[in-house]
Structure formats: C-alpha cells, structure tokens
Design a protein around this nucleic acid. Structure first.
Lengths: 166, 166
DNA sequence: CGATTTTAGTAACATGAGTTACTATTTTGC
DNA sequence: GCAAAATAGTAACTCATGTTACTAAAATCG
C-alpha cells in the first residue's frame, strides 16, 4: 500500500510553502489533502476484505446494484449510472460478472440495442453470503463516530458533493 | 467525466437491498459511498484547473513539495513519501519534471545510491505563477462552509484517517 | 573487516478506469 | 414515412499508478 507514515509530512510542506509564498488558505488545503490522503486507504481497506472472495470493490457494487433490482436485472447502462462509471467500464464489469457465473447476458426483447444482465442463483448466493461480512466492515470503520458526528459528516459531505456538481 | 446525475440512484439501491436483506448499517454505508462519489469529482475539479498549464495534480504536488524545501531539492524517495505514492511513481514524476525543465537530476555526493532533484528557475517561476490560481480554486471549493463546519470536518477526517492507519 | 541486511532507484509488467471511434438500433421531427 | 439525431454496447487505445524483480550502494553487527 502507501508507504507514507502520516499526514504530518504534507502538513509541514504546506507550512513551508506558506513561509516562502504567503497567502495559503490553510484549512481549505488541509481539508482537500485529507480527502486525498484518506481515499486510497479507504479503497484498500474495503478491497482487502473482498479480494479474499475473488472480487473487487467495483464488481461488488455491481452485484449489489443487480441484487437491489426487483427482477435482479439491469442493463449495462444502468450499471454505469449507478456505479458512476463509464459505459465502457460497465461492459468490463459485465464481462467479469458473466465470466464468474454471477450474471448472465441476454438480448433485450423490447429494445434490441440493449443487453439484459441477470443475476444468477450463484450470484445471489454470493451477495447474501458476503453482505453480513461487508456490513461488519462498514460498522467497524465508523465505530469511533457517534450519531451526531455521523449526522454532521453526512450533511457536510452532501454539501461538498453539491458544490462539485454531484 | 462521470455520467451520473446524482447520488440518489445509489441511495435507492441501498434502500432496496435493505428491503430484500435487512440489516444495513445505513448511515455508515452512505458515508462511505459519499466519499467514493465525491473523490472522482474532486480530482477532476482540481485537475481541470491545472491541465490548462500542462500539468496534473501529482506533478503539481511534486513541484510544491520541492518548492517547500529549504534548498528546493528532494530525493525521489522524499517525493514518494510526501506524495504518499510508490517509489516507482516517484521515478515517473521525476522523469516528467526533468522532461519539462522544471527540475534537474544530479547524483548525490554524500550517498551514491541517491539522486538529487532540484527545482530549476523555470520550475520556481511556474509554481509562483500558479499558486494564486490554485489557492483561489481551494477557497471557492470550500466557500459554502463556515469556520465551525471546516473545523469539525477537519477533526472528523483526521479521525477517519487515524482509523485507516494513516 | 566481511557477510548480511537495508535502502535508493528503476525497468518490466499488471490493473483499473477513462476517451475516442465505430456499429446497430431507436427516437424525433419534419 | 424517412432523414437526422440520440442511445446502447463495445473494442482499441491511453493514462495513472501499483507490484515484482533487479542492481548498486550504504549501513549493521558479530
């Protein structure tokens, strides 16, 4: 993973830049950098807990998206939208799901441009066997945060997302 | 960029998974997903504002790291540590800096395993010309957040980072 | 001191995801 | 109804970065 010991090295760099060329919006820079520092660690953390079962974060989310659908079917475009990734990537994810027998591709009857991806029984079984595990990981990740803190954080993140046009 | 309209699609999926297989730690999942939703947008946002000047987020951070040093020199390993990326990537970043004439490579006198990267006058000029611009972007990004909110957010993010071993 | 371990840098390879370009199909608007 | 525009899926290519393997040069310690 990342070889860095802590965030402090970066903080010192910020301080020294300020000394040489004053005018840093210090807290704004720190907040932004904290996000960049957190994300690879969060990714790795969640992925590690899935890799043991032969899947990665993206494929897991796709499985959940399928599982969430009434008839557990989705078009690649829906995958792309729900996972917030490109249509190209949706094709790849579909390939991966089919290759592992977790979903099956078939042509759509009503719109022949479309492909239908349907979760197989094996896919359903995988989701239901991993869900409790995944939920435990999420609970532990946020275990140090009390209800107030989580509430505030959710509000602030939504605000940031809005600012970024999401 | 990302084709998704909003976060709501994902929230609905979370709700439907809960309906089918109860027990979701809802807020914890939402918080985690918000981070994943925010980051690509934040990356793109910051990158867009640098691409116009022929550099990307990583190279910009490396330039700043060099600029922050007393004698504006750094070893590739230092780059790797400060930017929280692999030594391999540090080599690539160094290649990029040298190729553009922003830094120069030379052998270290005291430790012959090491390479010294030194910011050139052209590199210094680039940093100082872009800094005000970059600072403006940061200020606007967090403009909707008051001091209290930023304070709390910083505290909570540091806590999360600690939880992730950063 | 000399053998072993650690550190620095890098190249070759692997992974994951975006961009562009293309085809087939459907929808729209005269 | 049909020409033009929009949409779905995909392949080929590109970009950014991590992993593994290797070499050379210190540092350690017995």
């Amino acid at each position: 993973m990342s070889p860095n010991k802590s965030f402090s090295q970066l903080e010192q760099a910020i301080n020294r830049v300020e000394a040489r060329f004053p005018g840093t919006p210090r807290q704004e820079v720190i907040l932004t950098r904290l996000l960049f520092h957190i994300m690879p660690r969060l990714s790795t953390h969640l992925c590690d807990n899935l890799k043991q079962h032969g899947l990665n974060e993206t494929v897991w989310m796709a499985l959940l998206a399928l599982y969430a659908c009434p008839n557990q079917t989705l078009n690649p475009s829906d995958i792309s939208e729900t996972l917030d990734s490109s249509r190209t990537n949706a094709t790849r994810i579909a390939d991966e799901l089919v290759k592992n027998g977790w979903a099956a591709r078939s042509a759509s009857a009503e719109d022949r441009r479309k492909i239908v991806l349907e979760l197989t029984p094996s896919g359903v079984a995988l989701v239901e066997s991993l869900l409790p595990f995944s939920r435990e990981v999420h609970k532990q990740l946020w275990a140090d945060f009390d209800d107030d803190e989580k509430q505030i954080l959710e509000r602030l993140m939504r605000k940031l997302l809005r600012q970024l046009g999401g």
